[in-house]
Nucleic acid binder design. Structure first.
Length: 335
DNA sequence: CATCAGGGCCCTG
DNA sequence: CAGGGCCCTGAT
């Protein structure tokens, strides 16, 4: 397989990381390691990797590039995750104590979804997905800024192009790290991105998004948006703060509220390709009205519309791992 | 070869 | 509120 990105990102050799800290995390049950550390519907990206029971991801935190390795050491009902932190050198006192709660949030270890799985384990549609993936939750994995970069990259683009754009950005802006036998990309910071002028960003073939990237980076560079404060705010406030960013519209907000802020309800919008796929999955029809799909989730799974969608959606893409689903391949258009 | 939509969003009228 | 424009690419 062709590597996702060129071997030397940013023109510099990979930064070598070594293991500096280990700890065992105890997620709230039910917790399904694989279903949380890998989302098969997401396009592959060189900043993370997964193998059954193990997961690797890079991270920028307090001016350092880190590598994280997660290992599944528990069960769905008695979960335990072994975390190893890789860093370029010795970490200052208090660094890890501060980092761990952030990791707990980013990987959504504490959210309790037992009410959902209990309520719908016998549901005609959700039952089989819950059987397979009980303990799956939304997972941000990245910072809010990084997630926004990804969402901008998927706007108005097919999957293949999104991958090209993100990897071009990694190559130009992010430095690779090497840890645990792997070489992986790291994200850039807002300030690092702002060092590139709009025309230079455009050379990476991101098109009109170059302007959006800069505007969002400016907002985060000014610290006008504090992710940790936002997490404590009510939904309406988050929608206002994040929705005011240039380039963030209804579709991006819809994703963000679930995947980054973990609101399990409030499904309002079905993007065109999800509409096609859900039409097929739920109604065995090539295309039903958006309102019909919305009504389906709102009447059957009140309070859990988004999570219910997520279970059906990821279950379908896990199935795609095991077998070829022709109609789905046509919708994904990876190549 | 040309045309067009794509996992949107902004701006204008 | 509708519709054009926007960067690029692969499909048709």
């Amino acid at each position: 397989m062709v590597p996702l990105h060129s071997p030397i990102a940013g023109g510099r050799p990979p930064l070598r990381l070594r293991p500096v800290a280990r700890t065992t995390l105890r997620p709230r049950s039910p917790y399904n390691f694989d279903a949380n550390l890998r989302k098969p519907s997401h396009f592959p990206s060189s900043d993370n990797a997964w193998d059954r029971g193990s997961s690797w991801i890079t991270m920028r935190w307090r001016n350092r590039r880190l590598g994280l390795r997660f290992r599944d050491e528990g069960t769905v009902d008695d979960p335990a995750v072994r975390l190893t932190i890789f860093a370029p050198g010795v970490l200052p006192r208090g660094y890890v104590r501060d980092l761990v709660p952030e990791i707990v949030w980013r990987f959504n270890l504490n959210q309790d979804i037992s009410g959902f799985t209990r309520a719908f384990e016998d549901d005609e549609y959700l039952g089989p997905a819950i059987e397979r993936w009980r303990g799956m939750k939304p997972v941000a994995a990245n910072s809010l800024y990084e997630t926004l970069m990804i969402y901008v990259v998927i706007q108005n683009a097919v999957v293949r192009r999104s991958i090209q754009m993100l990897e071009a950005l990694f190559d130009r802006l992010g430095r690779d790290v090497r840890f645990d036998g792997r070489t992986m990309s790291t994200f850039w910071t807002p300030r690092e991105m702002l060092r590139l002028k709009e025309v230079d960003l455009r050379r990476l073939k991101v098109g009109y998004r170059a302007k959006t990237f800069r505007r969002i980076s400016e907002a985060f560079g000014r610290r006008s948006l504090d992710e940790r404060l936002l997490r404590e705010m009510p939904r309406e406030r988050i929608e206002r703060e994040v929705g005011d960013l240039y380039g963030v519209g209804p579709a991006t907000l819809e994703y963000l509220l679930f995947e980054d802020f973990y609101f399990l309800d409030g499904l309002r919008l079905i993007p065109p390709w999800e509409r096609k796929i859900m039409s097929r999955l739920l109604f065995r029809s090539s295309l039903v009205r958006e309102s019909r799909i919305l009504r389906f989730f709102h009447t059957r799974y009140p309070g859990y519309e988004k999570l219910a969608f997520h279970y059906l959606w990821e279950d379908l893409f896990w199935r795609r791992d095991r077998e070829t689903i022709d109609w789905l391949e046509r919708e994904i258009r990876r190549s």
